[in-house]
């Protein structure tokens, strides 16, 4: 598997480390709602197909990325900077 890093170009997958599901949004930090927090910490959609996930280019430019990858074929559909992804997601 190779991931096209926006800064470094197409790089071998071993340069990156997987940081999990990027669809999760952290609950409001002042919230004390146990149900909401436990759901955030423990539950996952676990998509079979195109999955949006965080990767860190830790043996390269060290950028945090959001990658859309097919979990059946490992085809990379899109790569964005995590910062850009998060800013665009917020209203």
């Amino acid at each position: 598997m190779r991931i096209p890093c926006p800064f470094c170009g197409l790089r071998d997958g071993v340069e990156f480390s997987y940081q999990g599901d990027a669809n999760r949004t952290r609950p409001d930090p002042v919230s004390v709602d146990q149900t909401v927090w436990n759901d955030h910490v423990f539950n996952r959609v676990n998509t079979r197909g195109v999955h949006r996930e965080f990767w860190l280019h830790n043996h390269g430019c060290r950028a945090h990325l959001v990658v859309e990858r097919n979990t059946v074929t490992h085809e990379i559909v899109s790569v964005a900077l995590a910062r850009q992804f998060v800013l665009e997601r917020k209203p």
Binding site: M1, G13, V14, S17, Y18, D21, N46, T47, R48, G49, H51, E53, R69, T71, V72, T73, H74
Partner: peptide
């Protein structure tokens, strides 16, 4: 392999 996978085969690393 270290990332979510539904492929019943692994990668080389």
């Amino acid at each position: 392999d270290g990332y979510n996978s539904w492929a019943q085969r692994g990668n080389l690393p």
